[in-house]
Design a binder for these strands. Structure first.
Lengths: 172, 172
DNA sequence: CCGAACTTTCAGTAATTCTTGAAAATCTAG
DNA sequence: CTAGATTTTCAAGAATTACTGAAAGTTCGG
């Protein structure tokens, strides 16, 4: 396999992964491209490589910056902006966890708390069954949320670092 | 808030959560409905409540069964099928992890191994940079994969049970 | 200021994904 | 077997989501 084919194959695979996770394919592809670029790239380079329009490149780059996965870089004496991806995938994963907790888990937790306040006789078996189910859900989602919080805070934490390394004996 | 409004609100929220995670909204809504139903429901009941067509209900129920989140139930003396959701959300999460590892992480790992075999002079700085980046990615994704594997196997494992409970002191 | 270089926006269009509904298939009681 | 009840399939249409390209906006050196 040639280098360019290999790059393309990786970009496609990363794009497919993203699209299974509710991330638009192009956004994931731009991310992939930046992940394997040692140097930062300009919007034009990205447009050219991925064959996408300027508007599309701009929007997806902005979204990536929003997620904290990509940074703008200004080269001195140059008007043009360059883009650089965070290369440490754990860092990326943490960033994604932080954002998704904020954007998705928190709202669900709020709704669960909210619907627990349903009106009606607590002795009504229908109400009671619903409240019980919702409480159970709330408790578990909350547990998951706290677990993820810990995972994110574990950066640099010796306990988790050790735990993680247990599963990757061959990391160099 | 009335019971039916509360149910609807929860169903909508769960649907929105799903659609952010690459799961189609209706599938997540069907799942939500079953989660808060103490008894199993027939396809007609689901169609009626969610106002969806028979075909749609059938497809999404099948997908939920595929993911191991819902089971068919046959009531004796009845031709009609009923559907029942797994109520334990940790169980649900584990099931989802198992499936996504299989469907998404594994293929990415395969591609990463594959593109590492790129042809060309290892001394070519372009090739070298690419291979290094891919190796780094592979190692981290692999680490994550093993971590998730452990998480799934931890069911009933005292270590993780304890760990989890640390984050939910108020679980009853 | 001016204008060149570059970035952002967004209305219209394209592509993708989801849903419907009706026909075909399957099942089961009699 | 047969017929009614039920489930499954799938082509066509609807809805959603993503992309383009051109126009508007921004920035900055001179």
């Amino acid at each position: 396999m040639q280098l360019d084919d290999a790059k393309d194959k990786f970009i496609q695979a990363w794009g497919a992964l993203g699209s299974n996770w509710g991330i638009n394919r192009t956004m994931a592809q731009v991310h992939a491209l930046l992940l394997i670029s040692p140097e930062s790239l300009s919007a034009d380079e990205i447009m050219g490589t991925l064959k996408i329009s300027r508007g599309n490149a701009n929007m997806n780059l902005r979204a990536l910056i929003d997620w904290g996965l990509v940074q703008k870089e200004h080269k001195s004496g140059e008007r043009r902006e360059y883009f650089l991806a965070e290369k440490d995938i754990w860092q990326v994963a943490q960033q994604v966890i932080v954002e998704r907790r904020k954007r998705e888990l928190k709202p669900v937790l709020r709704v669960l708390e909210d619907v627990k306040q349903v009106e009606g006789d607590t002795n009504d078996p229908h109400v009671e069954a619903f409240v019980t189910a919702v409480e159970e859900l709330h408790s578990t989602v909350n547990q998951a949320d706290r677990f993820l919080e810990l995972l994110v805070k574990a950066k640099g934490n010796a306990f988790f670092d050790t735990l993680f390394k247990l599963f990757a004996p061959k990391v160099k």
